[in-house]
């Protein structure tokens, strides 16, 4: 019973850690090389998207709530960027609107590329979260199959 609870706690921990920092859940489970691979594969598109789009409008639920929902799947990054975006909006509120647009808001095609990168990074992190939880619970990847021999034994 206690080990079941421990297992559940560990699974939830792995999921939450992956949400906060991509790959951290795998790191907790001891799969450190995989953790680094997943960290890089999610962080690279996320921060490329923020760099291309600029933090003010790219991570802003008032601009695009569905994009923000996808971004929130990489929760640690998006929370940080949302605080930065809100702060920047307050600090530049007195600027002329043309100046604000010119300096802080990406235009086509950069805005499109940034949205695609950010949404993809968030959705990729959903896969990473689910995989960390699966590996914690079953000791196997998300889409694991039972070994042939045990499947055959179960069938007979």
């Amino acid at each position: 019973m206690a080990s079941d609870v421990d297992q559940t706690v560990r699974t939830v921990q792995a999921g939450i850690l992956s949400w906060v920092l991509p790959g951290a859940g795998h790191f907790l489970l001891g799969q450190r090389a995989l953790a680094w691979v997943l960290f890089l594969a999610v962080s690279l598109p996320y921060w490329t998207g923020v760099a291309i789009g600029g933090v003010m409008n790219s991570v802003n639920p008032r601009v695009n709530k569905w994009l923000f929902a996808a971004e929130m799947l990489a929760g640690g990054y998006t929370s940080t960027c949302f605080v930065a975006s809100s702060t920047l909006q307050r600090q530049t509120a007195s600027m002329p609107i043309e100046e604000r647009f010119r300096r802080y808001i990406a235009i086509y095609p950069g805005s499109d590329v940034a949205q695609i990168y950010l949404a993809t990074a968030g959705l990729l992190n959903l896969l990473v979260i689910l995989d960390a939880m699966s590996r914690s619970q079953y000791g196997a990847p998300t889409f694991h199959r039972p070994p042939e021999s045990s499947a055959g034994a179960a069938a007979t």
Partner: peptide, 21 residues
């Protein structure tokens, strides 16, 4: 810009199916 994004998608897609690297 499709190329780096496709590479990241490919890496994650394969990594979450891998038992080892």
């Amino acid at each position: 810009m499709l190329l780096p994004l496709a590479l990241c998608v490919a890496v994650v897609y394969r990594a979450i199916r891998a038992r080892t690297l």
